[in-house]
């Protein structure tokens, strides 16, 4: 039943995907107006669309997983999990490819370093999605305390460096600095760290989703 499920997921998301594609085309055409056609400028322009997309995707992703189960389709929790993630991966891959294509065609200075930067960016988004997805999936677990502990952990992760910063009167070491550090790591290391992190989080998400006590809203 997995192919049928995958087909259903893509059908259900095709308008959102099409919209993303159209907006990209729109921005590509818009870039023709500007003198500076660097890939960074294009990415900057499309990032508004991109982040709105990310938010819509992550919400519909967790919603879909639950609805398919609720609909009593003859599919396993695991199949639903993978089908839903495959949609996200496909969509992100498409967006990254568009950036690549833009860079190759329009940016004279598009180089290998920028390709890896784009990959890191995509992987960074995946890590972010996985972190949020785990939060959604923890909601269905019993006791609910797990969900709150996780949220507290995330909040701590974000706020602690800031508090530490204020107290120690030292600049640097905020989470955003850490992220920036990851992005500016040497190509190989940065990609490796993010990949491992993403795969780890994905497996954790699967484990959490399979252990849900209730798949109702």
């Amino acid at each position: 039943m997995f192919p049928e499920l995958l087909k259903t997921e893509f059908l259900a998301n095709r308008f959102l995907m099409l919209l993303g594609l159209l907006l990209n085309v729109f921005f590509i055409l818009l870039m023709g107006v500007f003198d500076d056609r660097a890939v960074d400028v294009f990415i900057g322009a499309t990032s508004i669309v991109f982040y709105i997309h990310v938010i819509v995707m992550v919400v519909s992703h967790s919603d879909q997983k639950i609805t398919r189960l609720y609909a009593q389709l003859p599919v396993t929790t695991q199949q639903i999990f993978w089908a839903s993630w495959l949609v996200i991966l496909t969509w992100l891959a498409a967006q990254t490819l568009i950036w690549f294509a833009y860079g190759l065609w329009f940016d004279a200075e598009f180089e290998a370093a920028q390709i890896s930067l784009l990959l890191q960016r995509a992987l960074g988004v995946l890590v972010f999605l996985a972190v949020i997805s785990i939060a959604f999936d923890l909601w269905g677990c019993r006791p609910r305390l797990w969900f709150w502990l996780y949220v507290a952990f995330l909040a701590g992760l974000i706020s602690l460096p800031i508090i530490f910063d204020v107290n120690s009167d030292r600049s640097g070491q905020t989470l955003s600095d850490l992220l920036l550090a990851t992005f500016s790591m040497s190509t190989g290391t940065g990609l490796a760290v993010l990949s491992v992190l993403f795969v780890g989080l994905l497996l954790a998400d699967l484990a959490v989703f399979k252990r849900n006590d209730s798949y109702l809203y």
Binding site: Y70, Q72, N212, D213, S214, Y215, L216
Partner: peptide, 9 residues
């Protein structure tokens, strides 16, 4: 019913 159909463990 929910336990039977598996929407609740």
């Amino acid at each position: 019913f929910r336990c039977l159909v598996g929407s609740v463990r």
